[in-house]
């Protein structure tokens, strides 16, 4: 099998001797046009991998920020089908930056797993993270996705012990997403020592790149993670930026402000190992 866009991106990062920045935004948040502008500018702002949330009415593993982002996107008319259209438009202008869709299973279940996989590949999606599909439920989506060459990225958590890790890593590809805290997105910040130990533990079990997320908000935190792992994931802090502009009633400067935030994070991540 040829290397996926994610494989190529992480190889390029290794060649550069630096960690990557993974940015998460809610698909369609706060409205379709602004979202498209946000998405389109992320690579230039320094995002190495882009995660796009598939909006869901009941995001059980997410904190208040991302819940609100999901609901804003849905209220503005986003659907899974439309979201794939936005990804396809992004792909027309960018063939290098990997896109990972992240969300919950029910919208995909309703869409039809097979039909969804076809549509996602046509749109230019590279990988999937489906929060509520553990390895025990791999048959329906994970295995067919892998068979079609899509990456299936799994979350590992502090509760995933050495006994369970092989099961979690079994059908994982692209990268492994280490959730640095037990909790929901946007909660407490991770402790560097524990993250370091966790990343080392993961590396004893896998050669996959390790991205670390949950609770990373500021450039210095991202730099701290970048010294330990292959990538730092920032989500809630970006979604909060959207919320702030929506609350002010003026979203005209939102995309630019969000990209500026990403630039700050990206610079910190790029400098981290040189410092």
């Amino acid at each position: 099998m040829t290397a996926s866009r994610l494989d190529r991106r992480f190889q390029a990062l290794r060649d550069e001797g630096r960690a990557g920045l993974v940015t998460f935004v809610c698909g369609g948040d706060p409205d379709p046009e602004t979202f498209q502008a946000i998405l389109g500018g992320l690579p230039e702002a320094g995002a190495d991998v882009i995660e796009v949330g598939m909006p869901f009415s009941d995001p059980m593993a997410d904190g208040p920020s991302i819940q609100a982002g999901n609901l804003r996107a849905l209220a503005a008319g986003m659907t899974l089908e439309r979201l794939l259209g936005h990804i396809a438009r992004f792909r027309n202008g960018n063939s290098e930056t990997p896109i990972v869709l992240m969300g919950y299973f029910n919208p995909i279940h309703k869409f039809g797993p097979e039909r969804f996989l076809e549509a996602a590949i046509v749109a230019g999606v590279d990988g999937l993270i489906v929060v509520d599909l553990p390895p025990e439920e791999d048959a329906e989506l994970c295995l067919p996705a892998l068979a079609r060459g899509l990456n299936f990225i799994r979350l590992a958590t502090p509760t995933t012990d050495d006994k369970r890790l092989p099961k979690v890593l079994g059908n994982t590809s692209g990268f492994i997403y280490y959730v640095s805290i037990t909790g929901i997105t946007g909660a407490a910040a991770p402790v560097a020592d524990m993250v370091g130990a966790a990343v080392e533990r993961l590396r004893r079990h896998t050669d996959l790149p390790v991205a670390v997320g949950f609770g990373i908000r500021e450039p210095e935190q991202a730099a701290g993670i970048a010294r330990l792992a292959d990538a730092a994931v920032v989500g809630s802090a970006l979604v909060d930026e959207v919320a702030r502009h929506v609350a002010s009633g003026d979203t005209s400067g939102l995309a630019r402000a969000l990209h500026a935030k990403v630039e700050g994070l990206a610079q910190a991540v790029r400098r981290a190992r040189a410092a």
Partner: peptide
């Protein structure tokens, strides 16, 4: 695996699986 026919199962975040 907790299935009643096609129903049931364990569709939860990894944190909860253990």
């Amino acid at each position: 695996d907790g299935h009643f026919g096609i129903y049931g199962g364990r569709f939860v975040a990894e944190t909860l699986m253990p």
